[in-house]
Amino acid sequence: MRCALFGDQIEAYEEVLKPSSQYEISKAPITAVDDQYKFNLEELPYQMTHQTIIQRLNPESGPIKPNQEHAMTISTWNDLTRKPCDAMNNWAEKFNVVGFTALKTRHTRGFTLNTTMSTRIIMNLKGARADMLREWCKLYQHVLLDRQERILNVRYPSTDKKVVTIAELRRKKATNATPDEIAWIKVIIPKADLQRVNAYISCLGCGKRTHLALGTRFPCISCKKGDTVAVHKVTFKFEAVDDTGTMSFTTFSDDTEKHFRRTAT
């Protein structure tokens, strides 16, 4: 079976996956894969998606230590928004290790996780992996504090506008850094080229492309919604230019509609 890593996963698993080593792959949700992502049509039409756990089988190799931390948004619903979440209100500076079970993925405006009817929040998480994470948090609390500050600056930006160049943005991208504030780029955007507009039909919830007719109601295997509807979505790719260089950007439905002053339909 072929396996593919995307984006940040490549760096995160760089020190984990080694040639000729043996691994246990568990808790891997299996979903259908679009034909456009296959290398050839003889492949099985399935893929292992997010939440997959990979663990070395060689006991002498030791535990896999986290070498990279990523922020993840988890939205809680219904009863979980009360007592379980209230217990975490004062944890902002403690970086406690918490367990969540039975979360579902959502791909609207980025990758996030949502609770379900089966989700439990485990406050007193036990086990070797949880202990290892606690030790890591103690050793690298300065890393977590720095990461926390950058995330808060992005989610709750100041009203100050900082104009940055494309070269500065490129450096931030190369170091995987999060901008400290809203970046205003003074650029020249070429005349809008309709050839770069990509209009398609997708799931209303997650934006996953579908070949169903517009307005069709269907269960989405991507965001796991039992009843969604096929709607129009649109993206626009363009090159932005300033005195320091050129960079490619993509606008999604809302911003694309504003740019062209017309709906995706």
Rank of each mutant, 00 (worst) to 15 (best):
M1Q: 04
M1R: 13
A4C: 07
L5W: 00
L5K: 10
G7E: 00
D8M: 11
Q9E: 11
E11P: 03
E15V: 05
L17E: 02
K18Y: 02
S20H: 14
S20A: 06
Q22A: 09
Q22D: 06
I25S: 05
K27H: 09
K27C: 01
I30R: 08
T31V: 03
A32V: 11
Y37M: 01
E42I: 09
P45V: 04
P45S: 04
Y46F: 00
T52F: 06
I53Q: 11
I54M: 06
N58A: 06
E60H: 12
E60T: 01
S61L: 06
P63T: 11
I64P: 05
I64Q: 01
P66D: 00
Q68L: 05
M72L: 15
M72V: 15
T73F: 11
T73M: 10
I74G: 06
S75A: 12
T76E: 12
W77I: 09
N78K: 14
L80Q: 12
T81K: 15
R82Q: 09
C85L: 13
D86Y: 14
D86V: 02
M88P: 10
N90E: 03
W91H: 00
A92R: 13
F95H: 06
F100V: 00
K104Y: 03
K104F: 00
T105I: 06
F111N: 08
T116H: 08
T116W: 03
M117V: 14
S118W: 11
R120V: 09
I122E: 14
M123N: 11
N124D: 03
L125C: 05
K126S: 07
K126N: 02
A128G: 07
D131Y: 00
M132T: 00
R134P: 01
W136E: 00
W136H: 15
C137M: 07
C137A: 12
K138R: 14
Y140C: 05
Q141Y: 09
H142D: 13
V143L: 11
L145S: 13
R147K: 13
E149F: 04
R150I: 05
S158G: 15
K162G: 02
V164L: 09
T165Q: 08
T165H: 08
K172Y: 11
K172A: 02
N176G: 01
E181N: 13
I182M: 09
W184T: 15
V187W: 04
I188F: 14
I189W: 08
D193N: 07
L194W: 08
Q195K: 15
R196Q: 15
R196Y: 14
V197Q: 14
A199C: 10
S202N: 10
G207P: 03
K208S: 09
L212P: 12
L214M: 10
T216C: 07
F218W: 02
K225N: 10
G226K: 12
V229W: 07
V229L: 02
V229D: 06
A230T: 02
A230I: 03
V234T: 10
T235N: 13
T235K: 08
T235S: 04
F236N: 02
E239R: 08
V241F: 11
D243M: 12
S248L: 10
F252N: 07
T256G: 10
